[in-house]
Design a protein around this nucleic acid. Structure first.
Lengths: 335, 335
DNA sequence: CTGAAAGCGCTTACAG
DNA sequence: CTGAAAGCGCTTACAG
């Protein structure tokens, strides 16, 4: 499987490799006769020439590779992010290499190292708890990097996020108006700032409302979401809940919780009302249409790649935080 | 952001780059004094040396990159495949670069070209209709390649698939035993062999059973699955269907169809029974537990990477087809 | 035990 | 209009 090279073309055409390179890359600086141009293109075609980007990368110091690190590519949220990023990256001539961190700082660091060894031109990452140190090192080296969906408190990295706190607040306000006896927030027991923002938004809205509504927070780890949610919901809801609202702060949590409701025949919105962060295909199989917070994934991907591309071209990190607006899509899972 | 190189280490240590290379790569062939070894490792550490795999690739002709082409990475089935492949590839020292073809032969070809320019050591692909030609070219060049989930009729490529036809047959037999008035197969209007196998399995089981059961096939395009399924199901089922079984031949089809049932309050399994190919998180939100065909994704990924790795190391394609067994998980969506 | 040197496949400033 | 040459950061057979 010997691949053909520029040298082969040069030899056959009887010109230098420099000439071949100029022609194939359509460099305008130097004029080359139409004749040799044509000859070179023809030869390239017939000997089935494929340019070796590795060699080009070595010379130009640009790999046209972008690293993407998400928590788990099999998670619907991230696979959709990845898909949007892929499309956008391709348009700018980049190819994506992808890794999953599993919320594990060591694995995250391994991936960062691997990707930088592969000489990716830049990285788009969803940082995990404990990744501050390694990311700070990249920032110090001026490595083009952008965080997406998440951000870190103490590291200045350009970030693409949504207005988590505000949308959580307004979603909670939306619930407050409906005068539930109790509103339960279901979130993660985590230190990830963007998730804490959602929680703070909830709490702020409650306390600022002056309403005397009962509230509860159910926080779960990332290990056994389904089991943990089911048992905690069971304890919180009892046999026949009424006039209660559930606020799930991610689609994974929502699927676990809604699954509990379905299994226990708790009617939405008759017995209980539900809002959730993020979409999922799964909502389609739920008896009522779920009211949810829609994140602008395509726009996020657009901004992320654009911002990264800018950094790559100018080697100038900006620590700019781009906050996009999520939107509450009101359907009929709330009374 | 000038990165440090082996040359820097050599200069500081006062040795040759050859020595540095030997030490860093732990080559046993030549013995190097413990002293210089230690010195080299220390210097590498302090100047924050990251090996440039691009340079290594150019020299060794191995990129340690694997290309993965799926129909759509945001499709749950493929994102799970990708995740399993990622884990397995990482263990063997490979990194995955991923692309989505959208069932489009041109896009598929573009990705193949892109990936081969990036010098991937091999590719794992879910071939689309019309990709025979381009894949044949790769095979002719002895390019290490493996298809997963799918295969092509006229191209000899090592493939990892499941026993689509057999499992479809036995699933249909399972339905036949239950004496439905009518069994409806919902599949794709496609030329993809692995999907046709599922359909053939269904048809074979029906005709060989000798049962006088009514059957129907609903075949949809990939454009507007949801709308198409909903309207065709409506026509097929009427107002109050009874004693009918639905056989969905993919999870996407199942979600679309089950969504219709939920919306129209058609009870499963009371009014209608359901079996489906593939799993999805979405089943968790359906009122009954769906009986489905489980594909051994992890095993598929394992075999795919193993087979590809073998080809890469031996440059010997085998055209071997590995067929793994899918399994019918019987739950309570059938009467 | 260690180094000089060639070379992987490109790009590009320079010279003519 | 075109070519000779250096060099990107590595690896590795060879020589000593």
């Amino acid at each position: 499987m010997k691949r053909t090279s520029i040298k082969d073309i040069a030899r056959i055409a009887g010109v230098s490799v420099a000439t071949v390179s100029y022609v194939l890359n359509r460099k305008e600086g130097q004029r080359i006769s139409e004749n040799t141009k044509k000859k070179i293109f023809e030869i390239a075609e017939t000997i089935n020439y494929t340019p070796n980007k590795i060699a080009k990368s070595l010379k130009t110091n640009k790999s046209k590779l972008l690293g993407l690190i998400v928590a788990d590519i099999s998670n619907e949220f991230y696979s959709h992010i990845a898909r949007n990023l892929e499309d956008k990256a391709l348009k700018l001539g980049y190819t994506l290499i992808i890794g999953s961190s599993d919320e594990n700082a060591e694995k995250f660091e391994k991936l960062i190292e691997l990707f930088s060894q592969q000489q990716v031109d830049g990285m788009i990452v969803a940082p995990v708890v404990g990744s501050e140190h390694i990311l700070q090192k990249l920032v110090d080296k001026n490595y083009p990097i952008v965080t997406i969906d998440r951000y870190l408190k103490d590291v200045k990295i350009p970030s693409i996020i949504v207005n988590n706190r505000e949308i959580a607040e307004s979603t909670t306000d939306f619930l407050l108006k409906k005068k539930f006896d109790k509103i339960i927030y279901i979130g993660y027991d985590t230190k990830l700032p963007h998730l804490l923002d959602r929680q703070k938004g909830f709490e702020t809205a409650i306390s600022e409302s002056g309403e005397n509504v009962k509230t509860q927070s159910i926080l779960v780890g990332i290990e056994n979401i389904t089991e943990e949610i089911q048992s905690k919901l069971k304890a919180a809801l009892g046999i026949s809940p009424t006039n209660i609202a559930l606020y799930f702060s991610s689609n994974k949590l929502a699927v676990a919780g809604l699954s509990y409701l379905v299994q226990n025949n708790i009617k939405v919105p008759e017995n209980i009302s539900v809002v959730a962060f993020d979409e999922t295909e799964a909502y389609k199989l739920f008896p009522s249409k779920i009211t949810y917070v829609k994140q602008p994934l395509e726009e996020m991907a657009d901004e992320a790649v654009k911002l990264l591309d800018l950094q790559i071209k100018q080697y100038a990190a900006s620590a700019k935080k781009i906050t996009l607006s999520a939107e509450l899509i009101v359907q009929n899972s709330t009374k």
